[in-house]
Design a protein around this nucleic acid. Structure first.
Lengths: 223, 223
DNA sequence: CGTGTGGTTATTGTATACAAATCGCTTCCG
DNA sequence: CGGAAGCGATTTGTATACAATAACCACACG
């Protein structure tokens, strides 16, 4: 995207993820235009994108609101992501070159380093994690699959989840990645799929445990 | 979407599917604005949507082209659709009410009637087929899943595929739907998933057979 | 009191004018 | 002859003004 549009997207997204606005709160294009410093035209483009990522939703009459992700929504998201990303891992296992596998190892080394700091550098972990998964999706060489996954992965949950990780959880993630690399090196699609499946499913449960069984609360209802 | 934007979307989409423009051909927002009779602003919104559905693609420098669906692209699309729609069938099997199942039966009766005309009424078949699948996705009660599938199903392939169906193929489709309904009535998610899987996979092969092993042609001949 | 109806304001949708970027061609130099 | 630089024309991106629509509120009326 071009300058203003991209700017608007990044700013609004950061604004949403920062928690500065509550779920269910109404936003207007004018507000966002002021916040981002660009006119409504690029803001509208950014908003469309964020709607696609389900960070924003529209009421029946086109008014704009901050999306409210219930626990069920999050489970649903993880389930879909698991389905698609397992497929990606399977395909990647058949396609990854030695060089690409080596690149994954490098990424995971960096991820581990971030985990082993005290306290763990969660931001760096997240970035390495994102790059790792992205590389696999890229290697799956399926543009549509990549596009679908982008919608799911960009979701806010990723960030929220990370905050709830203990160092133990982060270490387990790193081990999963190691095993994934092993599966790739062995060119075993079935193995890769299985590891990816448990990796993502565990991530969901880690998150669910932190959020609690059915809590939707988080943030005062404007009652 | 609002009037002009929706108008632009529908017109451009029809224009693309009609085959009036060749794959790979460049389009400009101005052209589309003239064709649709609305200004560039809503055209741009429509174009974004069509990009999402991969009917249009952008070059590295933001220029707009008609997407070129290779046979591999189509297989990829079917594979993803199968993965997601099997999941939808599984979920639907757990959720469909008796009334909803009855509604599916009605839809499929109409579909069969369309098939048994001489010659088969393909348009009516397509509409009934679309409604049938949509009802299942709806019943799966997973907004994100629905959103992802919408992107895949809106693809042009659906229309192109139908033209290549023989009456035998259409009848088999109807039988698949019957079996799907039976699986739903039995509340058997596993059965539903399996039927949906073979249903979609067969659709792909029917298509592939018609197109030929690696043909990219996309004939405009409406034989 | 509740309810519906009118007008007023807030918000989104569309058109248009202008700015920035890109393309294709020409020209000029090596 | 090849290729790089410049320039006009084309195309996309952004801002702004205006139109259409929906929400809000006050007030009359049953």
């Amino acid at each position: 995207m071009s300058r203003a549009s991209e700017q608007a997207y990044a700013t609004i997204r950061a604004h949403l993820l920062s928690g500065a606005v509550k779920a269910g709160e109404q936003l207007t294009e004018d507000q966002l235009s002021q916040i981002t410093g660009v006119s409504r035209t690029p803001v509208r483009e950014a908003v469309r994108r964020l709607e696609g990522e389900l960070l924003l939703v529209r009421s029946d009459t086109k008014r704009l609101f901050v999306a409210d992700w219930s626990r069920d929504d999050i489970e649903e998201m993880f389930t879909l992501r698991q389905m698609l990303e397992c497929h990606a891992a399977e395909r990647a296992a058949k396609r990854l070159s030695r060089a690409q596998i080596a690149a994954l190892e490098t990424l995971n080394r960096d991820l581990k380093a971030a985990v082993e700091e005290t306290p763990p550098d969660v931001t760096r972990f997240l970035e390495a994690n994102r790059a790792f998964h992205e590389a696999i999706i890229e290697a799956a060489d399926s543009p549509r699959l990549g596009q679908l996954l982008a919608k799911l992965i960009e979701a806010p949950v990723v960030l929220r989840t990370a905050r709830t990780y203990s160092q133990g959880d982060l270490r387990q993630s790193a081990r999963d990645h190691d095993e994934l690399v092993a599966a790739f090196a062995a060119r075993d699609p079935s193995w890769a799929r299985a590891v990816m499946g448990s990796h993502l499913r565990r991530a969901f449960h880690t998150f669910a445990r932190a959020v609690g069984p059915a809590a939707t609360d988080r943030g005062g209802d404007t009652a």
